[in-house]
């Protein structure tokens, strides 16, 4: 492609993005845009499917049949959301098997939040309330992402996920108003999940050199810090409503702005967990790889059968 043509394409692309239009799979796009999207969508998909594990652990132990059904439906949605996202990544020329390989070998990452253990039932409630609450903050702006297939996948996900946070908050409400042991369980879960939830938004954008580019490309709409602040402002009153204590002695409401100031986040922990040294990284990846490898003979059988049928039809 001539340099002049390249420049024209680049200008047309940026004009579409700047006008809040949508880029579609067969449109010309800068290679960096494609790569950034594949990386982000793939790791988002990985987060969905790894995210099945911490909660899935509790399906067989759920304390009531109603909660069991809700949890099964939720974990099932996560598998579905993973599929929507891999599907969106494939429109960019990526390949699901390759992306899974990158996950299985630790070369691509997933959200650090899923490397924490779920040691009590209240953790299932806390994940719905806090983790899905944080996810909604992130995902709603993504429904307006410049890349059409990603934006559309997010629209579906957001529609389906509206129940995830609510069921978590509801389950938390029941615990917070339950027996002393249940209440203790709820507070303990909040204590353990609060800071990792704040870390979900990532380090300040000042420490993320690529953020400005993602914003210019219309992939990212708000800074990591903006979203984190929104989350804190939305969640603290909910904790108060539950009568639970947010584990941050520095938390203060600024009456002027209506926003909460909060304490320092331990980013060394975040980087350690991202690198692979969180409490459950090894478990999560090992389980995922085991599921994939244990299922290989099934996938091979389905492919072999399809081949046989095709040959039979041709004969």
């Amino acid at each position: 492609m001539s340099e002049q043509l390249q420049a024209e394409f680049q200008a047309a692309f940026q004009a579409e993005v700047d006008a809040d239009g949508r880029i579609e799979p067969r449109d010309w796009m800068p290679d960096g845009y494609r790569r950034t999207l594949v990386r982000q969508i793939a790791q988002h998909a990985h987060s969905e499917i790894i995210g099945m594990q911490p909660e899935g652990n509790w399906i067989t132990r759920a304390p009531s049949l109603r909660r069991k059904c809700i949890l099964v439906a939720k974990v099932q949605d996560e598998a579905g959301h993973g599929l929507y996202l891999y599907s969106a990544a494939e429109t960019l020329g990526a390949d699901r098997d390759e992306l899974l390989d990158l996950l299985h070998t630790g070369r691509q990452k997933y959200s650090t939040i899923f490397n924490y253990p779920t040691t009590s039932w209240a953790d299932v409630a806390a994940i719905g309330w806090l983790v899905d609450g944080a996810a909604i903050m992130n995902q709603v702006p993504l429904t307006r992402c410049s890349y059409g297939p990603y934006a559309r996948a997010m629209t579906r996900v957001c529609k389906e996920e509206s129940f995830h946070q609510r069921q978590g908050f509801e389950a938390m409400t029941v615990l917070a108003n339950g027996t002393p042991a249940q209440r203790q369980m709820a507070q303990d879960a909040l204590d353990r999940w609060w800071w990792p939830s704040l870390m979900m938004f990532g380090p300040s954008d000042g420490d993320s050199p690529n953020s400005a580019q993602s914003m210019a490309w219309g992939i990212k709409r708000f800074s990591n810090d903006e979203l984190r602040q929104r989350f804190v402002d939305a969640t603290v009153p909910q904790a108060e409503h539950l009568g639970l204590t947010v584990p941050d002695p520095e938390l203060r409401l600024d009456p002027e702005t209506g926003s909460y100031a909060f304490g320092e986040i331990d980013w060394t922990e975040f980087y350690a967990v991202m690198k692979g040294d969180g409490p459950c990284n090894r478990d999560r990846v090992r389980n995922r790889v085991a599921a994939h490898e244990d299922g290989a003979w099934v996938r091979e059988a389905a492919a072999a059968y399809a081949d046989k049928q095709a040959r039979r039809a041709a004969a």
Binding site: R35, T36, V38, R39, Q40, A42, Q43, H44, S47, E48, G51, H81, A94, D95, E98, D101, L102, R107, Q108, K109, Y110, S111, T112, I113, F114, V131, A134, A135, N138, Q139, P141, L142, C145, M154, V157, M199, M200, F201, G202, P203, D207, S208, P209, N210, S211, S214, I219, K220, R221, F222, S223, N224, L227, R228, M274
Partner: peptide, 23 residues
């Protein structure tokens, strides 16, 4: 420095230093 974006549904993931295909 590795960049992280919160604009990933379930929590920040690196937007640099991660391969996108197997080469």
């Amino acid at each position: 420095m590795t960049s992280f974006t919160s604009a990933d549904g379930h929590g920040a993931v690196p937007t640099s230093g991660v391969p996108v295909d197997e080469g």
